[in-house]
Design a protein around this nucleic acid. Structure first.
Ligand SMILES: [Mn+2]
Ligand SMILES: [Mn+2]
Ligand SMILES: [Zn+2]
Ligand SMILES: [Zn+2]
Lengths: 148, 148
DNA sequence: GATATAAATGAAAAACACTTTCAATACGGA
DNA sequence: TCCGTATTGAAAGTGTTTTTCATTTATATC
């Protein structure tokens, strides 16, 4: 159940990537932390494992690890890059990975889930983001073949 | 039900803010669009309504409108600022608005909701973000008073 | 263990996104 | 119409992410 270093390292190898010192350092940094880290934080912590670790490599490696499924990007509340009018009633969005079109989902059915989160964590919940990604109907038609 | 220009403009006035040409232009730009726009896109489109619209004003106005509840920030998939290991089983996070601590939520209870989204929109759903914000138990104790 | 080769790296610079400062302007009440 | 203040845009500053490219490193093969 616990993801350990060797398992993650092997996943890299299995996907045909090299197991380099920078990548080892980044894995260790992520394993050490109980919370999401910014690229700069990952560089800083990773340098205790590999002193020359560069920031550019951190960016590249995180992208690679996210592609493979080893790491995941977590949006922090700052630096939001899009705005929409706040339609009454609270909505969410589905974004097409291919054409980047956005479809609004009216209605939010997270009430019960959020209540249970409040229960389990002790947090007072004040807001949430939900964004769904997929392929829109139009793009499904135009690209019935490839995968990436 | 439809949010029209006059209603939104009046909301600005009601909150004690001036109804300026830049703000009008930004409202029009947002009303025109069916999807979330970046600040730069809003400036560009807003300039068809007010040619001198500056980007700084766009940032300030969006923040104001979000405070009032007229606009909302929507995270687009780019420019993520944090990474975490993809723990097995798919998790979400609650982020404390005060201390920025992060608590992981194990388990995802969105299956039924996502299925209904697929039904309603025709999208093939390939992934989702859910992030919850609130005040953690510790911060609730340390700040039982103020609001902002 | 040495060698060959492509993948991966870090430095530097460029591109981009966002914020702060401040003098000039425009809104809205009187 | 006039006035006081909220609001504005230019400019400069800060921090983040990407691109480019010469060098280095991992690994497969010998
Ligand atoms: Mn919701
Ligand atoms: Mn989920
Ligand atoms: Zn599409
Ligand atoms: Zn907290």
């Amino acid at each position: 159940m616990t993801t350990d270093f060797d398992t993650l390292a092997q996943q890299l190898r299995d996907e045909g990537h090299k197991l380099t010192q920078p990548r080892r350092a980044i894995l260790h940094a992520l394993l050490d932390s109980s919370k999401p880290l910014s690229p700069a934080e990952i560089q800083e912590r990773g340098q205790t494992y590999y002193a020359d670790l560069g920031l550019v490599t951190v960016y590249r490696t995180l992208e690679l690890m996210a592609d493979i499924g080893i790491a995941r990007a977590v949006h922090l509340a700052d630096h939001c890059h899009g705005y929409a009018l706040a339609t009454p009633g609270h909505t969410h969005h589905v974004v097409c990975k291919h054409c980047h079109g956005v479809t609004e989902i009216v209605g939010c059915e997270l009430g019960a889930f959020l209540a249970s989160v409040a229960d389990r964590t002790g947090y007072t919940i004040t807001g949430h983001w939900l964004e769904i990604s997929g392929i829109c109907p139009t793009c499904q038609q135009n690209l019935p073949e490839s995968k990436h």
